[in-house]
């Protein structure tokens, strides 16, 4: 049951990325391109996504446990550290260079398989490098 819910959520997430135009790296980079032909679409996507999630966060305290799982597994929200800052900056540079973040890159495997696979392979290599160089 939990696996089915995860597959359904992933499928809806991927469909949302495609509907919103976020599986198009050129459109994403156009959002970051303030000095070029700026495309604000990404801001509307974020607004649309944050709305249901804000409702979900408001509902969460009323639930003793998740609907189909035994316990909550939520990250802490307060501690700021150098890893967070450095990681976000490095991610942002990569996002700007290619116009891709992890979700759209994986979803695009179905749309532009060759370049998406190349990007995802490099992304996995970056994740592996982090695991080797900076184990927790």
């Amino acid at each position: 049951m939990r696996n089915a819910v995860a597959l359904a959520a992933g499928t809806l997430f991927g469909a949302g990325l495609a509907v919103s135009g976020m599986t198009d790296p050129q459109r994403v980079r156009a959002f970051l391109d303030l000095a070029g032909d700026w495309d604000p679409t990404l801001a509307f996507v974020m607004a649309g996504a944050i709305l249901p999630m804000a409702l979900a966060w408001a509902v969460r305290p009323r639930l003793a446990a998740p609907l189909v799982a035994p316990a909550w597994h939520l990250p802490e929200t307060r501690r700021l550290d150098r890893r967070l800052v450095a990681g976000a900056l490095i991610f942002g540079v990569g996002w700007g260079l290619a116009g891709l973040c992890p979700g759209p890159a994986v979803a695009a495997l179905a749309l532009a398989p060759a370049p998406a696979a190349l990007f995802v392979a490099a992304m996995l290599a970056g994740m592996a490098a982090h695991r080797l160089l900076l184990p927790r």
């Binding site: 809806l12 679409t41 649309g48």
Partner: peptide, 28 residues
């Protein structure tokens, strides 16, 4: 080039998917 309505609609789908993960499975 902007497509605000499609962006917002797709955004809602992404947000509902994330809400299903949160409320259904207790995960981000």
């Amino acid at each position: 080039d902007a497509v605000p309505p499609a962006g917002f609609a797709g955004g809602l789908m992404i947000g509902v998917a994330a809400a299903v993960m949160l409320l259904g499975l207790g995960r981000i």
